[in-house]
Amino acid sequence: MNLYTEVRSLIKKELVLEWRSKYALNGVLLYVAATVFICYQSFKRVDPITWNALFWVIMLFAAINAVAKSFMNESRGRQLYYYTLASPHAIIISKIIYNFLLMMLLSAIALFFYNVVFQNPIGDVPLYLLSVIIGSLSFSTAFTMISAIASKANNNATLMAILGFPIIVPILIGLIKLSKNAMDGLDRSVSGDEIMLLMGINVIVVVTSLLLFPYLWRE
């Protein structure tokens, strides 16, 4: 099997597994909705800077919860079984793509609820959506590898947060700046630097993940 077919069948497997045990997916979706509602109840109305920051904080914790389980709820036996079937590159790529899809769904739902309860101050909607897509991509690339590392180290959820937060901070700073530009409706040429920076970090993270995952996987 070549890499492409391996990745495709692994993603299909992830989707089928998720669909069969819907509780995990529904749990995360409910988590997002409940968090948005709690924020609404505590803030009532917010100024635009807080609106933006709050959205990304909600997304950050949703992402930690959603992506953390990508390696943790797989038993050792099943991982060994994958090891015999697929190459480590196919496994990490399929996990990243699957987490990206999951994050896209999550962000769509979060953004929808968020806009329903809070007043929407976005100036440049397409650019804001782009920043949300880039955000989903960045969260999934960074947290997939972190989750793989944390799952090898005693499946510790605290460890996931300790390892993940410092790594995600530079990405989050870039995302908040980009989405703030979109909210203020600034000229799009202003945001070029941020988009380049974020995509650059993503490329670096994916490449290091691809290089390092085979060592992590081999046991």
Binding site: I149, K152, A153, P170, I201, I204, V205, L212, Y215, L216
Partner: peptide, 21 residues
Amino acid sequence: RIGAIYNIFAFPVMIVLLFVL
């Protein structure tokens, strides 16, 4: 092994943090 992997994974992010941002 896991320490080495995290060390290498975190290094480029640190470079971005200190010298680019």
